[in-house]
């Protein structure tokens, strides 16, 4: 039984890892296509039908490129940076509940790698380590642009983590649990958290943009000011890791946003048409991925709509607007709980 458990979990880990990487790879393709379409262009369409082999070509290109480690850099930290970025990006996926358990021959197989009862805290912890990947990489490069990018990244991530955490507190007060599995299960039917926590959602998604270093918060790597920011000195697959980590982060953020606020694997009314629990749980995966893809698209959509913030505006927004706003949200949620006695 124990060995079966370990084998099952290992399979789950590998599957989630591969799906994460696959989606991240195709996000790069999607990003270029979405960018092109939003700008009335055609986008990559030469590699394979509709350019579908483009991510593979890009990957091969990254591997084949010459690897340059600057002489003046701290070699150990220089290599450690992208490793941490990639590792933390992949680690967050383990607590996401992909769907309800599937039961085969009376044995129930949960579609979640592990349901630790402090799921949200785990995600926050890992994401906070993620900033070290950028910070260390930027610092070790021994380059002004990289250092500035790293400074900006760490300041920005630390600032927005506070607002993000506070916005989650309101959610946790409402749900009464910090296990992602339970939060997802509570939102069956129409009880999606977005309905009860619109302000919290707004704060959370904005902070998620900032945590992922996506426009309008891409100050750590803005090409126009800092060449490439923290990854200016990186080349070959180490650069690939940084870029890839960003897309994995985007995927995971989308999954977490969907789980926390948009009902996770739940879909209203579906219970009326399908009654088989196994079928329901497979459909749940489909719904969750539909939501995730929408949010990935939303990330890209925002990127090609809103210009980058100025640095002081960024800090102003983080400290003087979002933090008070999320505290207000906590107050309102508390009052709501007291009043409606939910």
């Amino acid at each position: 039984m124990v060995s079966g458990y370990i084998i099952y979990k290992s399979i789950m880990v590998v599957v989630v890892f591969l799906i994460g990487l696959g989606i991240a790879a195709y996000s790069t393709y999607a990003e270029r296509k979405v960018a092109a379409f939003l700008q009335d262009r055609l986008g990559p369409n030469k590699a394979g039908p509709y350019g579908l082999l483009q991510p593979i070509a890009d990957g091969v290109k990254m591997f084949m490129k010459e690897e340059i480690i600057p002489d003046v850099s701290n070699k150990f930290l220089f290599i450690l940076g992208p490793c941490i970025a990639m590792l933390t990006a992949c680690m967050t996926g383990v607590v996401i509940p992909w769907s309800t358990p599937i039961t085969i021959n009376g044995v129930s197989y949960p579609l979640q790698i592990t349901d630790i009862n402090i799921g949200i805290l785990y995600v926050f912890g890992v994401v906070s380590i993620g900033v070290y990947g950028i910070m260390i990489g930027g610092w070790a490069s021994n380059n002004k642009f990289s250092l500035l990018g790293a400074l900006r990244a760490s300041a920005q991530m630390i600032s927005y983590e506070i607002a993000m955490g506070l916005s989650i507190i309101a959610l946790v007060m409402m749900t009464g649990t910090i296990s992602l599995q339970e939060i997802a299960a509570q939102q069956s039917g129409w009880h999606w958290n977005i309905i009860y926590q619109p302000l919290g959602f707004l704060i959370f998604i904005t902070c998620a943009f900032a945590e992922c270093n996506r426009t309008p918060f891409d100050l750590p790597e803005c090409e126009t000011e800092l060449v490439g920011g923290y990854h200016t000195e990186y080349s070959s697959m180490k650069l690939g890791f940084y870029l890839f980590a960003e897309y994995v982060n985007m995927f995971i953020s989308s999954a977490i946003i969907s789980t926390l606020y948009f009902g996770g694997y739940n879909m209203p009314l579906i219970g009326r048409f399908v009654t088989d629990p196994n079928m329901l749980s497979i459909l749940g995966v489909v719904f969750l991925f539909a939501k995730i893809f929408f949010f990935i698209f939303f990330f890209m959509w925002i990127r090609w709509t809103i210009p980058r913030f100025r640095y002081d505006q960024l800090m102003h927004l983080g400290w003087r607007i979002f933090i008070p706003l999320s505290i207000l949200n906590i107050l309102l949620t508390g009052a709501g709980i007291l009043f409606f006695n939910r």
């Binding site: 979405v34 379409f37 939003l38 700008q39 009335d40 262009r41 055609l42 369409n45 707004l202 959509w301 925002i302 090609w304 709509t305 809103i306």
Partner: peptide, 24 residues
């Protein structure tokens, strides 16, 4: 800032369905 963001998003999404100006 939100109305402006929504307005911007609407503008960009319209371009998604527009005829492309570049050709293959």
């Amino acid at each position: 800032y939100l109305p402006a963001v929504v307005g911007g998003l609407m503008t960009t999404i319209k371009h998604l369905f527009r005829k492309k100006t570049t050709i293959d």
